[in-house]
Amino acid sequence: MTGKTKKNFSFRNFLFRYGFLFVLLLVIVYFSASAPSFFSLTAAISVLHTAAPLLVIASGLAFVIMTGRIDISVGSIAFLSSAVAALMISRYHLSIPLAVICMLALSCLMGAINGFIVVILKVNPMIATFGTQLAYRGIGLFLTNSMVVSLPRSIRFLGNKKVGPIYVDILFSLFVLLIMFLVHTRTQIGRQIVAIGNDISIAEKLGIKEKKISFFGYLLCGLMAGLGGIVMTLQVGGVTPTSGTGYEFSAIAMLVIGGISLYGGEGSILPGILIGGITLAVIETGLNYVGASVYVYSFVRGGVIFVSMFADALKTQIKPKAKIIEDEESSTILAK
């Protein structure tokens, strides 16, 4: 019994599964030692508040990445849908619920366009969503005339609303993560998405309607980008032409850090995305707290993204070998 337990424990697997948790702990210890006020409830809440828009966006993107595809237009979807809503509210004085409904419908439409191009027209996901990334931002810049669209003062500070000490957008993003977690783990669609990411041809042989499910992934991704756009806009009180730029790469990094493989079929919404989101936000917030040199920020951001991608690639290279060894061991045991 004891021997079996020893055999099942793999330090390598343990490291791959929990490695970033150790990194996160080390980062927290470092910032806490460098800036005493960092190790506090206020800072912890601030970290989650900073991460909130990206947590929502990443939760949708996860459903695309788990199918083994990618969507790099999420930042532009967040920008265009937010810009349209802000214009409807500020310039055309439409009601807020109507603007929000239009915004979410528009973000679904943009996700559906991505899904159509990638899944139906079979265009390479990177190229297709790079094209729509430019197109969506271009439409947004045209509509706003490349100007800042500020929200009316009556709703400008909604992004700061708190329940007790906790910002409402933190609760909202955690709620979204929970819903997405349930969709991923407790529904047929969630399991089918993972199956497609593992192997499309096997998934199809199993009777999974690959195109339909993958298309749904893109649609959901668009919707979540729109919801994330709402959080982002409320935090800053308006939409600027640069809103959402770089979000796609931060969201991808968040997912990879959280253990969602870029090669598809692997990873979890909870705690995966939460760990990834917190890690990135801790670094960003920590640098603010320690008053780091402005030139350090880009270097650290780039370094984190590189390390997470490298770890993902390494994991994918090592995994099949480990599987073969495990299979051989199982066969030996069975033969005995």
Partner: peptide, 26 residues
């Protein structure tokens, strides 16, 4: 100057940077 915050002229970074700096330096 108790904190220098880079914003890259991005509204999100103005917000997050200012908020973190205000909390770190009450």
């Amino acid at each position: 100057t108790v904190a220098e915050v880079p914003t890259e002229w991005k509204a999100e970074k103005f917000y997050q940077g200012a908020l973190n700096a205000l909390q770190a330096n009450p």
